[in-house]
């Protein structure tokens, strides 16, 4: 599988990473190299094999639906690049 520039541009947009146009060709080449190597998985017969979705055979435990934490907006926002009054500040979203 080789990726073209447009696919890389689309994937980069999905991943919210700006990739300058000048870098797209090189990135496409690198990613194609890795994906081409991954394609050896097509040799494996996986008929009837369940996908492994959990590492350990364990049931997720249930707990009571109680509020046990929270109410600490200052602590939660203390690492924000921009915050005010216990809120995160972002660029204007609604005109």
């Amino acid at each position: 599988m080789s990726l073209d520039k447009d696919t890389v541009r689309k994937v980069a947009t999905l991943a919210r990473i700006k990739v300058p146009d000048a870098d797209l060709d090189n990135m496409a080449k690198e990613l194609s190299g890795v994906l081409g190597w991954i394609e050896q998985l097509n040799e494996v017969d996986v008929t009837g094999v369940e996908p492994m979705t959990s590492v350990a055979k364990m049931k997720l435990t249930m707990r009571a639906d109680d509020v046990t934490d929270g109410g600490d907006a200052e602590t939660v926002t203390q690492n924000a690049p921009e915050g005010a009054h216990g809120f995160f500040v972002v660029p204007k979203v609604v005109e």
């Binding site: 991954i38 998985l41 097509n42 494996v44 996986v46 094999v49 369940e50 996908p51 979705t53």
Partner: peptide
């Protein structure tokens, strides 16, 4: 083609 297949092969490795 990629993710689900990889998870199936992961089952075989286990």
């Amino acid at each position: 083609a990629y993710y689900l297949r990889a998870q199936r092969v992961r089952s075989l490795i286990l």
